[in-house]
Design a binder for these strands. Structure first.
Lengths: 219, 219
DNA sequence: CCATGGCCATTTGTATACAATAGAGTCCAC
DNA sequence: GTGGACTCTATTGTATACAAATGGCCATGG
């Protein structure tokens, strides 16, 4: 996957998520092509994908702008994500096999290790957290669910605020995953769904707080 | 919207939904371009969109195939659709204004008229049914929900079987919509969600029956 | 008979040129 | 000064040529 259009996708996506291009700003295919050192053709390809991800929007005449996220947008996205991830957890609990369970346990153990170390390794924690949720989605065995969720998980700013999580938040995430694992072990779909819904819901509030703090910092 | 890439999108989509190209069949950009009388460039554009709609899939080397729908796939899609449309109904009940309500009432009245006529007008019924669900989605005011649902509503074969609905089914749909309107009128989100979930669920079984009948016909 | 390796046909990926269109600014008439 | 038409520029849309990669086929050797 070292193709030009994949590179373009990755570059543009990072520029948007990191805030390098401001929400609401117009971006031209030409400019992006120069920035990625490829022609417009792969850029157009990448833009179609980013449009499906809802990271960009097009006005009536197809000009491209970086999506803006209002407080309502964010709440809406978390609502949907909570619902879909809960459904993923329910399905996973009913379908997970020994192998899948083992991978989930491993990822969560790594998360625990990362956060309990004398110097917590946040990057490591986040990576295993991502992998854990991905493994849940795998165990759910629903390509459609996976496709829908991929449109909701990445939001701008989350990147910039992820580092703000304190040790207490990380520990709680870890423990909620532990509980999820127990629900999986007992193949209790409804229980798993409840835990996951709460887990995402809590993440929503942490996220909101982080946004607030960021606004304060800016002032 | 008379652009080549939009025409290509519409043509290819229709070919897939109508079954003109079989599920699992490989389709080449070149062949589609000839079929649509445009160059490969707009075809590639259209394929990206169809990929987001899950109507096509790509193998590891990016070759394009028409998606296949197993019984599990169909059930999965309806599960998700029931969940998301229920959420749309809940939000709509809590947010709908007089204008939106009026449009919903109008569409459902048209549905009632179409099915109660001496010669039921199925096409008319289906069109207003589509418009009704779209109006619910509008009233929900969640662009994300709309974006996710658009990926689930169209499945192959549904087109071909839609004509198989009998008058009883149509009447029940009409009455369920009536009940939904009452929930909207009372701004009762949970009630609206329940009705909608059941509504989609019932449609699922009608759909399955139609598929079965089709298999019998073929034999 | 099967495995393997290389060649050829098919298919997708990228660059570029040019066409079409929307937006912005300007100038003129009123 | 304001409205409107016009032009000019920025931006997207399409076609085409060529490059790269994949997959199938056949020959060759074990």
């Amino acid at each position: 996957m070292t193709k030009a259009s994949d590179r373009a996708y990755a570059v543009i996506r990072t520029m948007i998520l990191s805030g390098e291009i401001m929400p609401g700003a117009q971006i031209s295919e030409e400019a992006l092509a120069r920035r990625c050192a490829v022609s417009r053709t792969p850029v157009r390809d990448a833009l179609r994908r980013l449009e499906a991800d809802l990271l960009i929007r097009r006005n009536t005449s197809q000009r491209v702008f970086v999506s803006e996220w209002s407080r309502d947008d964010i709440e809406d996205a978390f609502d949907l994500r909570a619902m879909l991830e809960a459904q993923a957890a329910r399905r996973a609990a009913e379908r997970v096999d020994a192998d899948g369970l083992a991978r989930l346990v491993a990822h969560n153990a790594a998360m625990g290790k990362a956060v309990n170390a004398p110097n917590p390794d946040i990057a490591q924690f986040l990576e295993h957290n991502r992998a854990f949720h991905e493994a849940v989605l795998d165990a759910a065995r629903s390509p459609r669910l996976a496709s829908l969720l991929s449109r909701l998980v990445e939001q701008p700013i989350i990147w910039r605020t992820a580092q703000n999580y304190n040790r207490e938040h990380l520990l709680r995430s870890y423990r909620e995953h532990e509980e999820l694992l127990e629900a999986f072990h007992r193949q209790d779909g409804p229980w798993a769904a409840s835990i996951m819904a709460g887990h995402i819901r809590r993440a929503f509030h942490v996220y909101l707080d982080a946004c607030l703090r960021q606004v304060e910092d800016a002032a």
